[in-house]
């Protein structure tokens, strides 16, 4: 009677691996797929750095001339001061974070500490849909809803007659509603899901025992949130804000559609201004490859690249510190 094992070819425990096994093709293929991201990033960095430095190397502009407030590409001797764009990006982003951070952290706390199951199962999918809404749609909403609303409301007689607030909103430039404020408001909604979901994860990562420990000592839930939860999750919330900042600074179309695009240094939240991304989007199509104007746009994209890589490093530093403590 044949034994069951005779169905298999004889094998030895110490058999030398065959060529196919030694090649381990699957491992090599999946490795190449994963490593392709390194190639993409390396190439992207090389190309952007190369193009972004042409303004200095080829066109002979000095660093001082670039970090200047004067932007006039059509003058006889064109000036490419990109300071208004850098400052514009900084202030619009700061405005967005100022609005969005408290709100997002609130939503994250709501989801992680307060919401019963049913409420969570509505708000969480809603946030995912927020993430999915394309930036042109946000921009269009900004133009058709937010900008007219701002213009009508804040240019109205009641607001203008208020002290301080009235002074701000009667400043020149806020006739149309296209403004720093509009840009920050649109961005604040766009980064809300990012900040919310990352801080939510940070709150969930706080051990349950710390919550019960605090509540068992007779503290209220809010005292527990303020004195245990938020301090414990602080580095996670900080990561969330940095990620939100990266997203806000890099957002192009929605901002460009509502900000008014005036290449001046930002002075008041009611004024139209511009950002790095807006100006690149607007001008890239109007310029010719190799001319100084376009090289200035590449320099601006280099600045954007530096901002985003810096934030990646920053997030890593924050997280490493969290692991360390």
């Amino acid at each position: 009677m044949a034994s069951l094992t005779s169905a298999y070819p004889t094998s030895k425990l110490r058999a030398k691996p065959g060529l196919l096994e030694r090649l381990d093709l699957p491992r090599r293929v999946v490795f190449v797929a994963a490593a392709s991201m390194i190639i993409v990033v390396a190439m992207l960095m090389i190309f952007i750095v190369w193009q972004g430095t042409q303004l200095f190397v080829k066109d002979g502009y000095s660093l001082g001339a670039i970090f200047d407030a004067k932007w006039d590409p059509l003058a006889d001797t064109p000036e490419f001061g990109i300071l208004p764009f850098i400052l514009g990006t900084i202030v619009v982003t700061a405005g967005a974070l100022l609005i969005s951070t408290p709100l997002s952290v609130g939503v994250a706390l709501f989801l992680s500490e307060v919401a019963p199951k049913w409420a969570k199962s509505i708000v969480q999918p809603a946030l995912e849909i927020f993430v999915g809404i394309p930036s042109v749609v946000w921009g269009w909403l900004g133009i058709t809803v937010l900008v007219p609303f701002l213009a009508d409301t804040f240019n109205g007689p009641i607001v203008i007659s208020l002290p301080i607030v009235g002074t701000i909103f009667s400043m020149p430039g806020f006739l149309t509603g296209f403004s720093w404020l509009a840009g920050s408001l649109v961005l604040s909604i766009m980064v809300l899901p990012t900040i919310t979901s990352v801080s939510y994860d940070a709150f969930r990562a706080v051990p349950q025992e710390l919550r019960t420990g605090s509540l068992a000592l007779g503290t209220t839930r809010w005292q527990m949130i303020r004195h245990i939860l938020i301090p414990s999750a602080l580095s996670g919330v900080l990561t969330a804000v940095v990620l939100g900042m990266t997203r806000a600074a890099g957002e192009a179309l929605a901002v460009q559609m509502v900000i008014g695009n005036s290449p001046t240094l930002p002075e008041a939240i009611t004024q139209p201004m511009t950002t790095l991304t807006s100006q690149i989007t607007l001008d890239m199509g109007n310029t010719v490859f190799g001319e100084p104007w376009q090289d200035a746009l590449w320099t601006m994209s280099l600045v954007l690249l530096v901002i985003s890589i810096t934030s990646v490093v920053l997030v890593r530093v924050i997280n490493k510190r969290r692991m360390g403590s």
Binding site: G250, E251, T277, L305, S308, I309
Partner: peptide, 8 residues
């Protein structure tokens, strides 16, 4: 890549 702006 996740943090590089889409425009870049």
């Amino acid at each position: 890549i996740s943090s590089v702006p889409s425009i870049v």
